[in-house]
Simulated assay, not measured.
Amino acid sequence: MNDAISYEEPWARTHQFDPPPLFDALRAERPLARMVYPDGHVGWLATSHDMVRKVLGDPRFSHSTEVGHFPVTHQGQVVPNSPKIPGMFIHMDPPDHTRYRRLLTGEFTVRRASRLIPRIEAVAAEQIAFMREHGAPADLVADFARPLILRILSELVGLPYEEREHYANAPALLHDPDAKPEDVAAAYERASSFFVEVVEGKRKQPGDDLVSRLVSAGQLTTEELCNMMILLLFAGYETTESALSVGVFALLHHAGQLAAIRADPAKLDGAVEELLRYLTVNQYHTYRTASQDVELGGETVRKGDTVTVSLPAANRDPAKFMCPGNLDIDRDTSGHVAFGFGIHQCLGQNLARVELRAGLSALLREFPGLRLAVPFDEVPLRLKGSVFAVKSLPVSW
């Protein structure tokens, strides 16, 4: 395994829950391996827990799209470099990243997320009532996970859920590698135009929501505000929806783990963290580019080299987690990187956690007989794409 691998090799997921087996071989033999990127750049792939955290925590690595090499193609096309987009701070370095992120930090604290629990529980109850009204079988994705996550995020940000046709489809298309570029562009443009209307509406009549507070602060332009809304939607919607849906799928398959939670609901918090580690739905869009030469694991990463870090591989590292291929809700999951690491660690992770806890709690409490309505192997999966997901999850109760 001395030659550089192709970018296509590591992302060939074939199992419902496990990352590609190549990760295990790479992690054992060369946790920082050479990888040929779609544009021909020969960069790196990090697969060990230690190496992933080193890269993500090192300020000598940039997350700018101006200099990086994208590790996958879209519709078979190389994703080109792009200039900074005002407000889209996820792909910025300090001090720009720091300035934008600081404006949102207070909106996503543990305390703020905890205050949303009653509302999340109420929405979960409404979606369960919807499922009961329409009867089994139901699609847990379309009837529960998707509306629960989108309704809460929309209310938090200040988007009118009843007008979701303007913006709800854009994240799914962006994360779908098979989506046509023109469809992605059209959905993005539609969402952007709608967000301009939302911002202008908040200027005239502010409410109790994130966008209204940002508008009132007066530090951002309309363009910055709209791009920040797009970022929050793209980063916080489909990822959490998928974590919830695939998490239920995993529990229904691991009957012993599910029974343990039912017997002792206090285990739910640990179960959420273990599902995040075990599944790691954020698959392969995490990469950094060296702004100077960096010595890592006996290798020299040259200035301009891009390192893709595999969060799923890091969370299955046996040097960090004993028997990492097992779903074990009683294990110590501290240090998992499902939400990333370093200054770009997921801003909305506290919200995601309370949504996952509330969603799982409601489902397990209200549907003691919850089960798959189709054979395990017939659950349709989205194995490609930046977010690992089930396309639908037919269930009965």
Rank of each mutant, 00 (worst) to 15 (best):
N2F: 00
A4K: 09
I5H: 05
E9M: 08
P19Q: 10
F23L: 11
A25H: 07
V36I: 15
V55A: 08
L56T: 02
S62C: 04
V67Q: 00
T73M: 06
Q75T: 09
G76S: 06
I85R: 10
I90T: 07
R102L: 09
T105Q: 13
T109Y: 12
V110H: 13
R111M: 10
A113G: 14
A113T: 15
I117M: 11
A124D: 02
E133L: 12
L148P: 01
I152D: 01
L173D: 09
H175A: 14
D176L: 07
D178K: 13
A179E: 08
A179M: 08
R190Q: 09
R203F: 12
D208G: 11
V211Y: 11
L214H: 04
E224D: 09
N227F: 09
G236C: 05
V248T: 04
L251K: 03
L252I: 13
A255R: 15
G256A: 01
A259L: 11
D264W: 13
P265L: 11
E274F: 13
H285E: 08
Y287Q: 05
Y287A: 14
V294E: 01
K303Y: 02
G304N: 15
S310W: 03
F321M: 03
M322N: 08
M322R: 14
C323D: 12
P324K: 03
S334Y: 14
A352K: 07
A358V: 13
A358Y: 05
S361M: 07
E366H: 12
G369N: 11
L370V: 14
V387P: 00
S396W: 01
